[in-house]
Simulated assay, not measured.
Amino acid sequence: MAGPTVKASVLHGAKDIRLEERSLPPLAADEVLVAVKATGLCGSDLHYFNHFRNGDILVREPLTLGHESAGVVTQVGSGVTTLQPGDHVALEVGLPCGRCELCGEGRYNICREMKFRSSAKAVPHAQGTLQESIIHPAKWCHKLPRDVSLDLGALVEPLSVAKHAQDRAKLPSGSTVLVFGAGAVGLLCAAMAKVAGAKTVVIADIQEDRVRFAVENRFADASIVVPMKRPEAIADKLEFAREVAELVKKTEVEGQAVGEVNAVYECTGVESCLQASIYATGPGGKIMLIGMGNPIQTLPISAAALREVDLVGVFRYANTYAAVIELLASKNPLLPDLSKLMTHRYSGMENIPKAFDMAAKVKDEKGNLVLKVMVDM
């Protein structure tokens, strides 16, 4: 028996999105059919939309974007007992092999055979969630409590990146944390640090409005506007990085200088930010590498090694969804109001190109910050 036919938003080239009909395969015993209701646009989606590539990863066939999504189960396979039609779910869209050593260790996010919806890394591409419905393994559909909205359900995916970074950092309560980058992921990392009991969270960005937003909405305790310098020579770059690190150390919270930090969540991928992270971190500290930037960077590595500052890679997430959903349902007073991140909303699949155009902006035509653009299907 054939599966349903659905409308899908399909990228054929840079900024060339078309609405098309797509036939889904029949539902397997362990799968469910989910009507996609809310999708947040991510930076990787934006790269594919604007350039038909994401860094070195080229799109090689028509691709449906979208992976930060939640929806409603409309049909379940014969073997599914954990979900039923009408359930609200957050979609974990990475599908690992489940057989390799990494999967066995629970590190399925770095499975070599991972197929991730909306990524062009594997061929054939795993189609994303910007379509009316998707068929997905029930195992990777996480039930949402009814008091957690579908919008927040879509935020579970990027919040999982922050949760995974927190799990990898293993910071003790009372730590001092610096976050480079006040976009959605940086703000979510700051929020998770607050929830984990950080004593002080400092956030830094080149955009003053973004760091102001972070402090005013309780994502961070203090902010730094990184100067817009672009030194060329290596010695000048490292000197600038030291200057930025000193700005961090001298920043005051409740009348006391922050000093060296215990950890940095580096969410920009910008070389100068990673250099400054090394200089700003105290002995025995950690730098969480979250932002995807230039793959080749010049770093003051001895400054890290001599003080045993660990550089820790963070790639997506593993085993985070249940904990993140529980956090969203808990009404934890340390968690900022995440709904304020969702600054712009577009309804209907025909408006997806407009949503991408807005996601590329720092501010809209009225001067309002653009943080997370949501698409209501």
Rank of each mutant, 00 (worst) to 15 (best):
E101Y: 09
L41G: 02
L63Q: 08
S339P: 00
L299E: 06
A329S: 14
N368R: 14
V270D: 06
E232R: 15
G106T: 12
R22T: 14
I296C: 01
S175P: 04
Q297V: 14
I203T: 08
R112T: 13
N109F: 07
L65P: 05
K363Y: 12
L83Q: 10
K170F: 04
L311K: 05
S119Y: 10
T200A: 02
N262C: 07
S339E: 14
T129V: 09
A29G: 01
M292G: 11
A222E: 04
K143H: 02
G181E: 03
S272M: 12
K340Y: 03
E113P: 05
D45Q: 08
L41E: 03
G55T: 13
A193Y: 09
V215T: 15
N294C: 09
G348S: 07
V36K: 10
S223N: 06
Y317M: 12
C273P: 05
F356T: 06
V185R: 02
F315N: 13
L335A: 11
L155E: 03
V32N: 05
V89F: 01
E365G: 04
L327P: 06
S160H: 06
F49G: 01
A235C: 08
T82Q: 09
D16G: 05
E20K: 08
C189D: 14
N50Y: 00
A241M: 06
P4A: 12
R18C: 07
P158W: 07
T64K: 03
Q275F: 14
V6P: 01
F116H: 13
S69D: 01
T298F: 06
E20Q: 12
T129P: 02
V59F: 00
P295C: 06
A138M: 13
Q131T: 04
D337S: 14
G285H: 06
A182D: 03
Q207V: 13
A276P: 04
V32F: 10
T64G: 08
A263G: 03
M228K: 15
R99L: 15
